[in-house]
Design a protein around this nucleic acid. Sequence first.
DNA 1: CGGCGATTGTCAGCTTGCTGTCAGGTCGGT
DNA 2: ACCGACCTGACAGCAAGCTGACAATCGCCG
Lengths: 221, 221
Amino acid sequence: MRALVVEDDPRIAADLCAALGQAGFRVESCGDGEEAWFLGDTEDYDLAVLDLGLPGLDGLSVLRRWRAAGRVMPVLVLTARGAWQDRVEGIESGADDYLPKPFRMEELVARARALVRRAAGHAGAMMEVGALALDTNRMRVTVRGAPVQVTALEYRLLSYLALHRARVVPPTELLEHLYGDEDAREANALEAVIARLRRKLGTGVIGTRRGFGYFIEGTEA
Amino acid sequence: MRALVVEDDPRIAADLCAALGQAGFRVESCGDGEEAWFLGDTEDYDLAVLDLGLPGLDGLSVLRRWRAAGRVMPVLVLTARGAWQDRVEGIESGADDYLPKPFRMEELVARARALVRRAAGHAGAMMEVGALALDTNRMRVTVRGAPVQVTALEYRLLSYLALHRARVVPPTELLEHLYGDEDAREANALEAVIARLRRKLGTGVIGTRRGFGYFIEGTEA
DNA sequence: CGGCGATTGTCAGCTTGCTGTCAGGTCGGT
DNA sequence: ACCGACCTGACAGCAAGCTGACAATCGCCG
């Protein structure tokens, strides 16, 4: 799950990155409006957290440009306290949710999760696809009702596949999601994780489409 | 469902009354500490919303007096922004939840509803989860019936885990809850507290999900 | 103000088990 | 049959978390 944090106060930005990172997001951060617009337009994020007061290009303009360019990822807007009119503008500009500063990190994380789930068409804290069920609160996994112990990395991989259930996810995308583009791992690392997961989950859960990527079984013809 | 709103700012008070009234509460309001204490002690409310900055008698004193008099209705405390020590004092004085200003009315209503539901669920001010039981009024802890002496810090950690029993709480969130965002401690401080608590409580109470966080055991298979 | 005990943050060393890498092996397409 | 894509088991490095010791700090009582 990739998240973009746009916040010019480095201290707040660091907190945001830490909290979202802990919540399972792979976080990228920038403090400049122009750069934010560029990143959001060229990269593929599952969530953006956007502060309105920015140097370079105003946050609302960034948001409008993203939407104008057809970017549909959920955007959570941070506004200064009491700036209620910002909220209206923000929503009209295409924000999905809005949080006044100061806020509690737990709430931000909860809202971020809710947004991502909503974007994926999941109603509750439970993601179910095929024989697989993910409890996003307890970070627990069951296959056909039987609980399975998975590690943090394995869980992130599973949740990403579950989130993009409709399609076959190419290995490069998974690698980029699990690790950064910066520190690239060997392609085999991913295969090792998949293998370990398959041993735990049994067959018939993670499928391979040779030459294309991986998917969760039970969602295709 | 009767609710008492204690808030000296008439504008905010009006908003609160409107929102809670809309949500189905029969609302009474007062802006003075002494009167609040009197009302809360003599009348029977299902919920109280309590601002801390009050003329007459301080909000925390009101709360403490209510609790000392044996009033057990859920109390939602409103604190000024970033006044983190208020939260601690509030919880230690017997608050059931707290909300930093500024907040959104919808959230206040949601939390109010949750509090009332919770209060209806288990009658007292007892939180029980697994082998653990917390007396939220007296700050006392028992494990499988046996009383355990815990420090204030340990109690805050336990109560937070118990409050969020349904999910695995990431260490960053616990750090933020125990200490402010202002003065950050080493990550190891949390681990030390956990270790000390485990020694007191015995095994099988606080569980670890490596890479995710901590939780209270007994809520899963 | 001063002393004392309880509390709690920090540090260093340790254990646990996750995870990337490697060296093969297997499978599918052509 | 061959080649490349993918799988698998073994293994070592390493990071997350645990623990005991110690020191700083706080609260309390005189």
